[in-house]
Design a protein around this nucleic acid. Structure first.
Lengths: 260, 260
DNA sequence: GAATAATGTTCAATATATTGAACGGTTGCC
DNA sequence: GGCAACCGTTCAATATATTGAACATTATTC
């Protein structure tokens, strides 16, 4: 039962499938459709290979062919819906939040680890104006986010260090934790505190407090975070929110195992 | 600019990618993880081929390997998020609904055609208790759903008949339209009426009224529907809801082109 | 308008993915 | 316990996907 299938050692892989996925990732990360030639260049493929891949993905509905090039198509929604539908975690998250006074005025998110990113599964939006939101499927580097910090801190040191080995993600702000060694120092702090703090590491002026949802063996299987601006809560109020998100994570952790 | 990339003629396809997608679809349609052997049998593949595909998809995070077998993983959420994020249609849908008194007490959905299915992009839930909901990515056969009926009715007869050629989908209820010929009769009616009616074709006792969102050339690019129980609205009230959903679709149709 | 650059598409040689068979291990039945 | 059935994994022969080149078309530059 592995927390992160993305970290599995490479073995018996089918590069054609990897290439298709890489093309999908490329287009998912692009704000506009890309032409076949752009895709071939960016993916380091022969144009004719890229042509075959894109035509196939188009025929499958995974991509859409537009006048301006190829863009992501609707078919992956089917897989996402299946993934999200297999867990009761989201509905429980939403049900618990509906009755949680402490977290109602903040944005609260639910995410899972995927490789070294967190992937957001659900977002309960603040009822305040000009709130910010996450869409299911959006990703951020785990070491900078409160949910990522909480989940990573709940891993064994060996596991965490293996997961974070290699190139450190590019910082999102000057406050982003700069390397694995500093992360280890932080992790010890979050373990003691019971929740993790992202103070401007993802977005300057924003504070996120995160806690891990655990399965029956105590392994982190999801993360929760509540987010607010630096101006909105300080000191004791901030600590109270941290305890509230830890309590919510604890309630969600009850009677697991989760689909992990 | 094609409405439905899934209907593109077959050409230069890469079967390895098709097989990977078929495995994903298989697992997306399964309520439990499937073992490698089950996947191989269901997909008609050699076990070792299925092994390579599943290991690769697992390494990519598209699948997850569990004790009970393989299940869908979180990676496709990234592609879904990209697809949903590229259209302003959803936020416009939500903004218009926030100020629409006529549709507030019903469940209202936004969907697109994908092959012969509709794929739901967004669902504005009724504020009534025990409401039903759709998750982004869920699919239903287009000919039975109000959004699908509306979109199909807005296609040219040639296009519609080409799209609906072949095996008719299995009916979901005894009221489901039984074949293409009967659908053509219905389509003429919806064109005249301005909105389409699913009266118990998807779920007995439920009525859905749908209308198409059109691009600048008048082509249907999305569908809206409002849903309620048979007991909740009849006669004039039902017609008023139909007109409301048609009006909403018309407002969403304004100043397109859409990401089609 | 002409020349150049770039595009998307097609096609046989090369690289690869799939296949069937084999294997060791596990499970269920008698 | 023995046997059959089944599982997941590995591996060389066969089927395939990718490649580089060629080509026709389109777009850009002068």
């Amino acid at each position: 039962m592995t927390l992160s299938p993305d970290a599995a050692p490479a073995r018996r892989l089918v590069p054609a499938i990897e290439r298709a996925s890489a093309v999908m990732d490329l287009l998912a990360g692009s704000s506009r459709p890309l032409s076949l030639s752009e895709i071939a260049r960016a993916a380091g493929l022969a144009k004719s290979s890229a042509h075959g891949i894109c035509e196939t993905l188009s025929a499958l509905g995974l991509l859409r062919s537009e006048a301006a090039g190829y863009a992501i198509g609707p078919h992956a929604l089917r897989w996402s819906a299946a993934y999200l539908g297999r867990t009761s975690l989201i509905s429980e998250f939403e049900a618990l939040l509906a009755s949680d006074d402490a977290l109602r005025s903040a944005t609260t998110t639910l995410s899972v680890l995927s490789g070294r990113d967190v992937v957001y599964l659900a977002c309960h939006n603040s009822d305040r104006p000009l709130g910010f939101t996450f869409r299911a499927g959006e990703r951020l580097p785990a070491p900078f986010t409160a949910t990522g910090k909480a989940m990573l801190s709940a891993l064994s040191e060996t596991e965490r260090q293996a997961l974070l080995a290699g190139d450190w993600p590019a910082p999102l702000t000057p406050a982003s934790v700069p390397d694995a060694a500093r992360f280890e120092t932080q992790a010890a702090r979050w373990q003691t505190l019971g929740y993790a703090i992202d103070d401007g590491e993802v977005r300057e002026g924003m504070v996120c407090l995160g806690a891990a949802v655990r399965d029956a063996q105590g392994r982190p299987v999801a993360g929760l975070a509540t987010s607010f601006t630096s101006a909105e809560a300080a000191g004791d109020e901030r600590a109270a929110l941290g305890r509230a998100v830890a309590a919510l994570a604890h309630r969600l952790s009850a009677h697991r195992p989760l689909p992990d």
